[in-house]
């Protein structure tokens, strides 16, 4: 991904090819107008988010969980599974008890 001049407080600009790369990572097939729209909108959102850069967070630990919970564990006891029919009930394409997908490579 192209990063254009992040030095000296200049903002990162997301390029069109960045948007295309992110779309591939996220598995979103975008139309031409969508690519243009997202390039513009992501830039304006991240421009706004750049306010975070002004904030000194040295020595601040990140919060991944707001709760001080730890060691939430379950016992190793078998519970009933779904019947195959129910497991496949919502599948767009199923055959013979399998989920079917198109060519992988």
């Amino acid at each position: 991904m192209a990063v254009e001049g992040k030095r000296g407080g200049e903002r990162v600009k997301i390029s069109r090819s960045d948007v295309e790369h992110v779309a591939l990572l996220a598995r979103l097939e975008l139309t031409e107008p969508e690519i243009e729209m997202f390039t513009e909108q992501l830039n304006s959102i991240l421009e706004y988010a750049a306010v975070l850069e002004q904030l000194n967070t040295d020595g601040v630990s990140p919060t991944a969980h707001v709760l001080p919970l730890h060691n939430v564990l379950r016992e190793d006891v078998v519970r009933p599974s779904l019947e195959q029919e129910k497991a496949l009930m919502n599948a767009p394409d199923a055959e013979n008890g399998f989920f079917r997908v198109p060519r992988i490579v």
């Binding site: 997301i14 960045d18 948007v19 992110v22 779309a23 591939l24 990572l25 996220a26 598995r27 979103l28 097939e29 975008l30 139309t31 969508e34 997202f38 909108q41 992501l42 959102i45 991240l46 997908v101 198109p102 060519r103 992988i104 490579v105």
Partner: peptide, 28 residues
């Protein structure tokens, strides 16, 4: 034609613009 294509089309057609926008932002 293939799985990558299928998944990308599924998500392109199945999600609306705000959801796509947030997925794009979050992925980035």
């Amino acid at each position: 034609e293939d799985i990558v294509d299928m998944v990308s089309k599924t998500r392109a057609e199945g999600f609306g613009p705000e959801v796509k926008r947030r997925i794009m932002l979050g992925t980035y």
